[in-house]
Design a protein around this nucleic acid. Structure first.
Lengths: 123, 123, 123, 123
DNA sequence: GTGGTCTAGACCACG
DNA sequence: GTGGTCTAGACCACG
């Protein structure tokens, strides 16, 4: 899986990586149990500091998306907890995005289509 | 329209206000041409620095949501440009949210329902 | 509140600080809403790097014990969520400690007395 | 006695094994003088490196929980020293756990009940 | 070889 | 002035 950093983005690098990995898991590009690159390898590949990647992995770990062990590096968790809940923060963000789209004249249908695509993972 | 600041949120205050005004416009709570409170009044009401509100208004203006004139203060724009486009940033955020929801076991139907509600503005 | 670091401990520094702040909140030494020292001030006082203190504050924040904002620094949260639950990790640790104490010939009464004291916060 | 490794835990494997053996001794599941599996056998059973088990046994030996001889392998010690003392580290950990539980709204009674259960060994 | 921790130092946005 | 992010570099325990 290829991680791409947008250096002009306001989203911190460690968060950009985190988001792409989460989207990779959701789309199936990253399978359960699959090995992630080592901290050093990913840092080298992206051209950033190992601490930054480390921060990403610790975040993903505390969120329950991945597990790390010193022998094998990081792997996608086999069983990610299915709470069935959308966080208040994400609801708020979703509402903001939908609102902005609506004002810009985007139809509800187009929005729904986008959600469909992202949910299916064919992006 | 009542603005509520979440002091626990990581979203900067000026952005929280901006988002609530945008959502107000989308839902129809704020009509086209409607007067917004003065920077000073809003700052006083929320209990924050006038600079922060000023930053919000400048942002809303540059985004084309509101217009300001010396006589009447800030008003919601009559004609907000309908580009029919969702920004790449918002698409990315939407995809992230959908991905996280999907992994958490939220059904596509529930997601679509949420989008419906936010689009309709009955929140 | 005075933070003391044991440099010979296996517990990471950021965790030692975190633990002492949590115990301070529990004992009432740190009141709800009370200001914590700034990242820089605490780092200087303890003689460690600001990053390490920053890590502590971010952890306490994500755990819901404190809140941070750029204007006022860090403060103990007013409302800490009362789940009424002891984490599996803590249960395991507790069981380990009780087991070791029991083997060493510590009476159950003495253990209970210790729990009493720690619960009351008179330490 | 069955040893179970939690691969998601931050506790090192050699420590997880050590803790389970100590808890086994405390609960009576492992009797004084009882034979422990050989390093090789246990490593094979758990599916880990022999070095890791070896580290566990060395630790248990230096702590006075087991003794090893060339002929019989490792055995639970007949006379484990009853100092009647809880180490400062364990006291600190206990205090941390009690503090976290208290903040979470766990009653002292529930905590004491847990200590009772762990002390009795009916877990 | 792996992730985890820590330092010294820097720059940034928010307010 | 505040917390947040990032770098370059180092050392450590685990396995």
């Amino acid at each position: 899986m290829v991680i791409k950093i947008d250096e002009y983005s306001d989203v911190p690098i460690y968060m950009q990586i985190r988001n792409q990995i989460v989207m990779g898991i959701s789309s199936g590009e990253l399978k359960a149990g699959e090995q992630l690159p080592t901290v050093r390898a990913l840092a080298l590949e992206i051209g950033i500091n190992t601490m930054t990647v480390s921060k990403t992995y610790q975040m993903l770990k505390s969120e329950g998306y991945i597990m790390t062990d010193r022998k094998n590096g990081a792997r996608v968790r086999q069983q990610i907890e299915k709470t069935g809940i959308i966080s208040d923060e994400n609801k708020n963000e979703l509402r903001r995005i939908v609102s902005e789209a609506r004002i810009s004249g985007v139809s509800k249908k187009d929005l729904q289509k986008l959600v469909d695509e992202y949910y299916a993972g064919n992006v």
